Simulated scan of single mutants.
Amino acid sequence: MRDTKSVDFFGSDKPSKEEADEEKGSGGGFFSKPTAAVFGFHILHISLEKVDIVVDVLVTNPNPIPIPLVDIIYLIESDGHKLISGTIPDAGTIRAHGSQTIKIPICLIYKDIKDTYDDIQPGEIIPYRVSVELLIDVPIIGRVSLPLEKKVETPAPYKPDVDLDKIEYDRFSLEETTASLHLKVENKNKFDLGVNTLEYNFTLGDDNKANATLSESTKIGQCGEGILEVPITFRPKDLGSAVWDIIKGRGVGYSMKGKLEVDTPFGPMNIPFSKEGGKEQVKERSGN
């Protein structure tokens, strides 16, 4: 009977020179240690409550077989403070002789951070150290740890203050009045805000409401103020007793609610605002 030779997966039979050249690792064995690198950091969504980020890790497998990625362990720190940590189990498989991007989703909730560390204030840009450890099972070598680290920045946004500075009217009649709201926006953040869109609901007096959208870009510098001039049209005859206050030049109660759509260095944000009360004077625009 012809002898048969048993060849196991780990290369107990001597491979050809070509196979040895292909499979030989830097350590002299048949398998090489995979490599990994952080090559991307993306802010997916930012709001006044939280920021959703994704860390991109490129893992390269130089071996002739797929290798399972057992766990991903991550830790985010700021100035020595541990902010968030977690483990992503069974994160997939890295294909043979290939590379694969592993996306690690992380959510930072500002309230949790502020409740834990009083020295982190709203409006600041917070530096972070993102530490990632990949645990991979490599044949023969065993479990391998690939530690990674990246320094990044994200903001802890502070809600801008929107207030009514004054009202000027261009044309006044009981049927239809056109006016301008001068809204003062105070940016309390340590980064610029680019106001792209303002949507608002404005109540003058008790009942009537004016709704409008302003789409005119205005940049408000860090820790600075800006004025948005917003045109409105309303029907004074629908205001009831408030119309007589306007005619007599008295102050008129108001309320307004809405949202600002702004650009930041870290991505776009939608910021709600509201303001109630007040007795603002309705002034005729100069030159009319």
Rank of each mutant, 00 (worst) to 15 (best):
I73T: 10
T35M: 06
G267D: 08
Y74M: 05
D207T: 13
G267H: 09
R285T: 12
V185I: 13
I136G: 04
S6V: 15
I84F: 07
S26T: 15
S255M: 11
C107G: 10
H182A: 08
L164T: 06
Y117P: 06
G277Y: 08
A210K: 03
T233N: 10
D165L: 07
F9W: 14
G92N: 08
S215K: 14
V162E: 01
F39V: 11
R143W: 03
N61I: 06
V51W: 02
T264A: 10
D90K: 14
E18Y: 09
L148Y: 04
D3K: 15
K219N: 12
T101F: 02
V54Q: 13
I246S: 01
E124P: 02
E216L: 12
L58Y: 02
V57P: 00
D245T: 05
K283L: 13
I109F: 07
K82T: 13
E149A: 13
D112A: 09
D79R: 15
G205F: 02
N196W: 00
S241Q: 11
H45R: 06
T203N: 09
I140A: 07
Y117M: 05
E276Y: 11
E261V: 14
D118Q: 12
I73Y: 07
I104A: 08
P265F: 09
V152K: 08
L48M: 07
I125D: 02
M269H: 03
L193G: 04
V55W: 00
I67K: 01
K279S: 14
E199Y: 06
I247M: 10
D56I: 03
K275C: 13
T203P: 00
I84A: 10
D118W: 12
K114Y: 14
G80W: 06
P272F: 09
T101R: 14
P265Y: 07
I94P: 01
S274A: 14
K159L: 09
S26R: 12
D263E: 13
G11C: 06
K279Q: 14
P139W: 05
E176D: 09
N211A: 09
Q281R: 13
E22V: 11
G25A: 15
L228I: 09
A156Q: 06
G28N: 10
D79M: 15
I271V: 15
S26I: 15
L164G: 05
P155Q: 05
P68K: 11
G86S: 05
R143T: 11
K166F: 01
S255T: 12
D137E: 10
T87N: 12
P155K: 03
T93L: 04
M269S: 03
K82Y: 04
P127A: 00
L146C: 04
K248A: 14
G86T: 06
N61L: 08
T264N: 08
P15G: 11
D163I: 03
A212V: 08
W244L: 13
D79P: 08
F31R: 04
P89N: 00
N187E: 06
P64V: 06
D163K: 12
V185K: 03
K190Y: 08
P62L: 03
I126A: 00
N187G: 05
V7M: 11
W244P: 00
K219C: 07
K103Q: 15
K190G: 04
